[in-house]
Design a protein around this nucleic acid. Structure first.
Lengths: 196, 196
DNA sequence: GTCTATATAATGATAGAC
DNA sequence: GTCTATCATTATATAGAC
């Protein structure tokens, strides 16, 4: 944001990204409080004080890590809500399948971070909005799906569907080898059964 | 276990239980690494070194806290598996409903502890068996339920059902006011739809 | 931007009086 | 069993040379 150097050291913000990548793995495998700034620096190939060239406090690294998540599905949800070319159930199922693939894929179970107690108490309050946005999006799509079968228990069904999708995060904790290509359609099928 | 004092100070192991209760709340709200032994002692009404009368290391307190969980549902699962007076679907649904009520009720979201990264790396390996036992129990009940409709995708369906149930833990993180009496039947209904 | 060196504070755990 | 006092470690963060 404030970098004005012409080239060299900052091509692609390499240093900062290396720190974020290292921190992502460590936060997921050891938790936030359980990860030291020395751990992060070492994995990023730096000495501990060098982190503070890029981040002013440890929590800022966490924020940067969490930025990588949630956004895409909120965006897709908004997109689907506006899409009138699909049936209600189909729109919901598309979001579910997309989310499961995202939660299940990728090298690290990043979504878990948003549920860690230590993280939820910190100054990372800015993205709680994101979760509320996501629930609102799910609620709208569930409402559209239930309308097709004349059901009206929108709130409760939204909770059930979100429970199913969020559950993927914990299932992945227990079984790190989940196959997205297999689980995503299966969860989507379950979602279809729930709203029918 | 080794206490031989006749009475007074040890009625109901009061001191130890106060520590466990205090630690339960703190571990859930701040995480394990994010909770200091001073925090625990203060909430239990003690000074920090007094913890070491009851526990020899901090991790032992965590173990004591985690003992409070999981057991009941493994026991019920075994019981249901042996119960021939119920249909396959019905047995599974009973376990699901019981688990949701347990995960959803109680003052603290204790089950989340078992998924914290910091906890899963520690010397708390003894109860990973418990989780494997639980999956085996679910698998057996899912198999019995699917048999009624001629389906054979047992492994995948077990994952889906467990995803749904485990999801309650994270849903509760987002919404601490979940009503077990409302959610449990709804999740049970979803489970029925999934295996039908 | 990264380094070495270091300040400062907090942590888990122990010793020994009562 | 709980206390006060304290140790040894480790943590985040800063200062200043290169």
């Amino acid at each position: 944001m404030a970098s004005s150097t012409s080239s060299e050291a900052l091509r692609r913000g390499e240093g900062r990204q290396r720190i974020v990548d290292a921190a992502t793995e460590l936060f997921i495998t050891r938790g936030y409080a359980g990860t030291t700034t020395r751990d992060i620096a070492m994995k990023a190939g730096l000495r501990q004080p060098s982190l503070y060239t890029h981040f002013s406090v440890k929590a800022d690294i966490l924020v940067a890590v969490m930025m990588q998540t949630v956004r895409p599905s909120v965006d897709l949800a908004a997109e689907l809500t506006a899409d009138t070319g699909l049936g209600g159930v189909e729109r919901l199922v598309r979001l579910v399948e997309f989310d499961v693939r995202m939660l299940c894929g990728g090298p690290w179970n990043i979504a878990l971070l948003g549920y860690l107690p230590e993280v939820r108490t910190e100054e990372v309050l800015g993205n709680r909005n994101l979760y509320q946005d996501l629930r609102a999006a799910y609620r709208a799509l569930v409402a559209g799906a239930l309308a097709e079968s004349g059901r009206t228990d929108v709130e409760r069904t939204t909770d059930v569907v979100m429970t199913l999708v969020e559950g993927v995060v914990l299932r992945r904790v227990q079984n790190p080898d989940l196959d997205p290509e297999e689980l995503a359609p299966a969860i989507a099928r379950a979602a279809r059964a729930i709203v029918s």
